[in-house]
């Protein structure tokens, strides 16, 4: 019986121990055999013989294994198993972002969606804000008797379909028309879940306004994208 065979035979009796405890027992016994083999080599034993003799001197591995296994409480093994299962579940939850896989389809859809009203002109302007993408997918003029302006149709999603979008992403944004801030809003007020959020806003325009720009500011970093109204609107 060599060192590995001895250690494996002991380990076979240690099924009631946690992996940590088993590893500790193995380390200790292996260290013992190694120390003994080293002493034998120092006395002139050839390598193989020193190993074999040191392992043989350990005696019956099953006896030692059973003797040790008796001392350990199986509750810890169960605690380890339960903890392992919990960690697996939590990892899965993290991966799915707590929302299940349902939102993934929504996140993918947001990348290609078009406005469903005929009076809204389709656009596809994308801005990267950290790990998220804000997409301007539609624009239209409106007039409600008191003011004229444009409506912007926006959505935001994580770059990765399984990722989670920042829920306060609209809170970092401002809208300017010709460089003048017209709208600042704290939340989108649109439909959203963990992976995608929609928002539509009205920007009042003055006569002569030719551009409207979206501006996102976060941690001192600003991203801005201007849309030329004369080009996108009839």
């Amino acid at each position: 019986m060599n060192r590995e065979e001895y250690l494996n035979a002991v380990a076979a009796e240690l099924r009631g121990l946690t992996s940590y405890e088993r590893a500790a027992v193995r380390r200790e016994l292996e260290g013992h055999i190694e120390d003994h083999a080293e002493a034998l080599r120092a006395h002139g034993y050839p390598e193989d013989e020193a190993e074999a003799r040191a392992a043989e001197r350990m005696g019956d591995p099953a006896e030692t294994g059973r003797g040790i296994a008796r001392l350990y409480h199986p509750a810890w093994l169960w605690a380890e198993r339960v903890a392992g299962a919990l960690i697996a579940v939590m990892a899965l939850e993290l991966f799915l972002g707590f929302g299940g896989l349902g939102g993934v389809a929504g996140s993918v859809y947001a990348r290609f969606c078009k406005p469903d009203d005929a009076h809204v002109t389709a656009l596809d302007e994308r801005m990267e804000i950290g790990n998220d993408v804000v997409r301007l997918y539609g624009i239209n003029r409106y007039s409600d008797g008191q003011e004229d302006g444009v409506e912007l149709w926006l959505c935001a999603y994580d770059r990765v379909p399984t990722g989670v979008v920042a829920q306060n992403i609209w809170g970092w944004s401002a809208v300017t028309a010709n460089g003048e801030e017209r709208v600042r809003y704290a939340d989108g007020g649109g439909w959203s879940n963990a992976r995608v959020t929609y928002c539509h806003i009205k920007v009042p325009l003055e006569p002569g306004d030719k551009t409207v720009a979206l501006r996102f500011e976060r941690f001192g970093e600003a991203v801005e994208r201007a849309v030329d109204l004369t080009e996108v609107l009839p």
């Binding site: 027992v25 200790e28 013992h32 003994h36 005696g59 008796r70």
Partner: peptide, 16 residues
């Protein structure tokens, strides 16, 4: 002299 491996159940029991 003893079967050296059998020392360890004793040591672990003492530790417990």
């Amino acid at each position: 002299e003893m079967k050296e491996g059998t020392l360890y159940p004793v040591l672990h029991a003492m530790e417990k």
